[in-house]
Design a protein around this nucleic acid. Structure first.
Lengths: 121, 121
DNA sequence: CCGTATCCGGTCTGATACTG
DNA sequence: CAGTATCAGACCGGATACGG
């Protein structure tokens, strides 16, 4: 399947859909964190600065729904839940890394340009 | 500037900032469109399906502010305005392309997983 | 032609409180 | 520990009307 000659300016094209997916506040950070290996809910919470329980749950559910994260519940008391990237989830890391690299390299210039622009007003 | 050992889970890290920048609905599409070369406002509008004047203006202003797009006004009547990617703007295309490629390759699986997940409910 | 100004509804998020 | 429920504010984006 795939490749029905997508028009990139069509709102249903894959890129748009993927951006809607990862463009939110937390998804990229969660994927990046899980790249370190399987991890418990609490561990992820501690690693990501400022995320709330609600948003972490919501983000993980979304990723699980899209087959990018696998959720494993160990029926214990207290419960233990582990999350890990699926095969598909791991492949997402590469393009994300490219973006991170760009960010690190260019953020200085961007911030500088921003300051200049704001002063010119 | 740059490289004060960013904590990727800090909300001020470059990646986060860049994602806040390009994570919106239109920025990526505008950058992709301008990659074809300098272009007038109306031309961009026609190329991008569904964008409103307001959002195009807003997106272009943001990109201009960050030094990723250059705006040139030709003082004519009626006015003629051209937009083009700056050097920095062009470098952004590469990581964006990586994301597009991932999207094209994996969107099928994602959509499929989503369907299964939703049925399981 | 290329915008700006305004209103307004939907979504995203965070804070808080509660549960198996 | 790992969630769910609820509420309210911020923000995004679209529609519309008007201006240089």
């Amino acid at each position: 399947m795939a490749d029905p000659q997508w028009d990139p300016y069509d709102r249903n094209c894959p890129t748009r859909r993927v951006l809607d997916r990862i463009g939110d506040r937390w998804t990229v950070l969660v994927v990046g964190t899980l790249d370190d290996g399987p991890m418990r809910f609490g561990e992820i919470t501690r690693r990501i600065d400022g995320i709330s329980q609600k948003m972490l749950t919501q983000t993980l559910r979304g990723l699980e729904r899209d087959g990018l994260v696998k959720r494993t519940l160990y029926p214990q008391v207290p419960p233990r839940v582990e999350y890990e990237l699926t095969e598909a989830g791991r492949t997402l890391r590469e393009p994300l890394k490219a973006l991170e690299d760009w960010a690190t390299t260019h953020i200085g210039g961007v911030l500088e340009a921003r300051e200049q622009y704001d002063q010119a007003v």
